[in-house]
């Protein structure tokens, strides 16, 4: 599904140039559950956002179903993020003045012209994540674990093929972290979605059937035995 061909990403600022990704080449088949580990600053987030169409590689190509993301217009990329990707972020990024239900509806709203039926679908998603009775609560009225589950429900809003999660358990205690990991595994195994998760924790990395390790922007592929080789 994803093919990276020597993708490079360099951040250039007044303080100089940082090479966040160095010639990363890899292939991620549909339906895999990939974990990305690596020290802080090794380029994990950069890799994830590149896959998510938020960062264009400085050189090299990122193909999604053979389409070069770098060649898409801004509007097309927005559409790609909206319809193909579900983002789950470490800081949840819920909109503070919208209820749980409305937060879940945000990506749906950007996709659908007709707003009919969106609320029902959002309610179903919240129900699936065990938040059926919290739909009308504001984010600050929810616990962190509940907030992260709202964020996951939001990621599922447009029934995306891919879930991109950047340290989704980073702000959660172990019990809640396990819950979120279970949910992600379920999304991969039951729904057949491709899940790509950045994490610090070796615990969390265990859910992956494909493990990538980044060091200073270089990718080391630690594919588990039995996984389809690249």
């Amino acid at each position: 599904m994803y093919v990276l061909e020597s993708a490079d990403k360099a951040y250039t600022s007044r303080r100089g140039t940082v090479h966040a990704l160095r010639s990363v080449s890899l292939e991620i088949p549909k339906g895999s559950c990939v974990t990305i580990t690596g020290p802080s600053g090794s380029g994990k987030t950069t890799l994830l956002l590149t896959l998510g169409g938020l960062i264009r590689p400085t050189s090299g190509r990122v193909l999604f179903h053979s389409v070069d993301l770098g060649g898409l217009s801004d509007a097309r990329l927005a559409q790609y993020r909206n319809q193909k990707i579900g983002f789950v972020l470490q800081t949840f990024n819920l909109v503070p003045y919208l209820s749980a239900l409305e937060n879940v509806m945000v990506p749906m709203m950007f996709m659908h012209r007709s707003k009919n039926g969106l609320a029902g679908r959002a309610r179903d998603l919240l129900g699936r994540l065990g938040l059926g009775d919290r739909a009308d609560h504001l984010p600050r009225e929810l616990s962190v674990g509940q907030q992260q589950r709202v964020a996951i429900a939001r990621a599922l809003g447009n029934d995306p093929e891919v879930i991109l999660a950047d340290e989704p358990t980073g702000n959660l205690d172990p019990r809640l972290a396990t819950e979120v990991l279970d949910t992600l595994r379920e999304l991969n195994e039951k729904d057949g979605r491709t899940v790509i998760m950045v994490t610090h924790s070796p615990e969390a990395a265990r859910i992956g059937n494909r493990k990538l390790h980044l060091v200073e922007g270089t990718c080391q592929d630690g594919a588990l035995p039995g996984t389809v080789a690249v």
Binding site: R81, V95, M111
Partner: peptide
């Protein structure tokens, strides 16, 4: 900023 960034991440176009 963060809110706008979230909207853009979730697929808002600049037009929206």
């Amino acid at each position: 900023r963060r809110e706008i960034g979230t909207f853009l991440t979730l697929g808002a176009t600049r037009g929206s």
